[in-house]
């Protein structure tokens, strides 16, 4: 299962305006891991994710997925293995019906239409919105949009799921449903988020980014409960670990 390993070595990236977004990021993720990437606004989380799917290319350092380095030439392979769920579902749902949107990826890989249909139906079924397949995206609720965006990625049969802020702008119930859904996936998961409680529940490992560098990388339970470390990085303990505001106990 070596092709599920992600190796990132000394990644550096500068924006066109000269601002440094990533300043030597290194880590290794193995098969089936679930990683939370946390950090304050502007820490470089989204930029890092963009590198994992080859939307951006590093100025220095390299990334490989499995044994394949991420370069312009290997993009078709990389993108089949790594599925990315964008922060804003409206950016990802660009077709006029949910069905066509989910079918977009498989059709680009020139799968026969029967296979496309099978994949669309099974991914929509997985995220629980098969009944919405003929709807236009603007008619979906926030939670349904998020589910549809995830389905568009699942239909590509990726080994690795990369997600940018999957729980942002979701109501508590939709958030809960999404967490359960993600828990049921066996894919390798890389989740960039500010939702510490979700990381606490979903990810056994956490990477904290600050100013484009990895500050810590280790077991979630240890990192997220470290009050000083969290504050230093502009973060907060998960609510579940904070004192109870009513009775004042943990």
């Amino acid at each position: 299962m070596s092709h599920h390993i992600i190796q990132v070595n000394n990644l550096k990236y500068k924006y066109p305006d000269g601002r440094e977004a990533l300043n030597g990021v290194t880590f290794r993720i193995t098969h089936g891991e679930s990683i939370g990437i946390v950090g304050a606004n502007g820490a470089g989380k989204s930029t890092l994710l963009m590198h994992l799917v080859g939307v951006l290319f590093p100025d220095e350092g390299e990334i490989s997925v499995g044994d394949v380095p991420v370069t312009k030439k290997t993009l078709p392979v990389i993108r089949q293995r790594v599925g990315m769920v964008f922060q804003e579902p409206d950016d990802q749902l660009f077709m006029t019906t949910v069905y066509d949107d989910v079918a977009f990826g498989p059709r680009n890989y020139k799968l026969p239409e029967e296979e496309v249909e099978k994949r669309v139906k099974s991914s929509l079924d997985t995220v629980g919105i098969l009944h919405l397949k003929d709807r236009p995206p603007y008619k979906l609720s926030g939670g349904e949009k998020r589910a549809a965006a995830i389905a568009t990625v699942l239909a590509m049969n990726p080994d690795i799921l990369v997600m940018d802020e999957p729980t942002s702008a979701l109501d508590p119930k939709s958030r809960r449903r999404l967490i359960m859904l993600l828990q049921s996936f066996t894919h390798t998961k890389i989740i960039a988020t500010h939702d510490m409680d979700m990381v606490f529940e979903l990810c056994e490992r956490t990477i904290i980014l600050q100013d484009g560098k990895v500050i810590t990388d280790g077991p979630t339970a240890k990192i997220l409960s470290n009050v000083e470390l969290m504050e230093e990085c502009g973060l907060e303990l998960p609510l579940g670990l904070q004192g109870c505001p009513v009775c004042g106990t943990k």
Binding site: V55, P76, F86, E88, Q92, Y99, F104, N108
Partner: peptide
């Protein structure tokens, strides 16, 4: 910027300038 993000999300699903509508 949104157009750029849309383009990226299309690329992530194998878009290469060809657009396929269902039959």
């Amino acid at each position: 910027e949104r157009a750029q993000r849309v383009y990226h999300s299309m690329c992530c699903r194998g878009f290469a300038g060809e657009y396929n509508v269902g039959r």
